[in-house]
Design a protein around this nucleic acid. Structure first.
Length: 174
DNA sequence: TAACATTCCGCGC
DNA sequence: GCGCGGAATGTTA
């Protein structure tokens, strides 16, 4: 089931946090992507395209900003803007949906997540879906560990995963 | 077809 | 217990 990429104009807005400058991308449907500060050429960090941002989008960005800061501080995020997950396949969306149900400070293994969505043997694919997750932090892909309670991997860098888990109170990973 | 952010089993240490 | 090698596994580009 594929959906060839439609071109949707997205607006990029920055989020300044004690941990760096995140970038949020919004489509008409909601928050479509969230980028870590990290990284490689720190791509485009331009704020919107010069054009005024709609009131609705400003409201979304306000929620996103607050949510990101709260998560970084180790708390629970409050209200979130609508998430635009239309970029993912159905399988990926069901995985991301399952991830959102993991409470703060809790973890699941890739196998458990696979079982939750009714495909116990697709555990390997769950890993792939996590890697494709466009909205880390808000979709807590960092709470998924390997079965033996090992870290597994993380797109944004394993140090992030450790840091986030540590701030949620899992002292094991400090 | 060839990757994988997996997991399980059997080794040897 | 820990680490390594190898095999089976579902989804994706």
């Amino acid at each position: 089931m594929k959906f060839s990429a439609i071109t949707v104009d997205v607006t990029s807005l920055g989020i300044n946090t004690p941990d760096g400058f995140f970038t949020a991308h919004y489509s008409k449907r909601g928050l479509a992507r969230l980028d870590f500060p990290n990284a490689i050429g720190e791509k485009s960090r331009r704020e919107s395209n010069g054009r005024p941002v709609s009131a609705e989008m400003q409201a979304w960005h306000k929620m996103t900003t607050r949510a990101v800061r709260e998560v970084l501080a180790g708390g629970t995020h409050g209200e979130l803007p609508p998430l635009d997950l239309s970029a993912g396949t159905e399988f990926q969306q069901s995985v991301w949906n399952a991830l959102r149900k993991i409470a703060r400070g809790r973890t699941k293994s890739y196998g458990e997540v696979a079982a939750v969505i009714g495909r116990p043997k697709a555990l390997r694919a769950v890993g792939g879906a996590c890697g494709a997750n466009p909205i880390p932090l808000l979709v807590p892909c960092h709470r998924v560990l390997a079965a033996n309670h090992k870290l597994g991997g993380f797109s944004g860098g394993l140090d992030w995963k450790r840091k986030l888990l540590g701030r949620e109170g899992l002292e094991f990973f400090e």
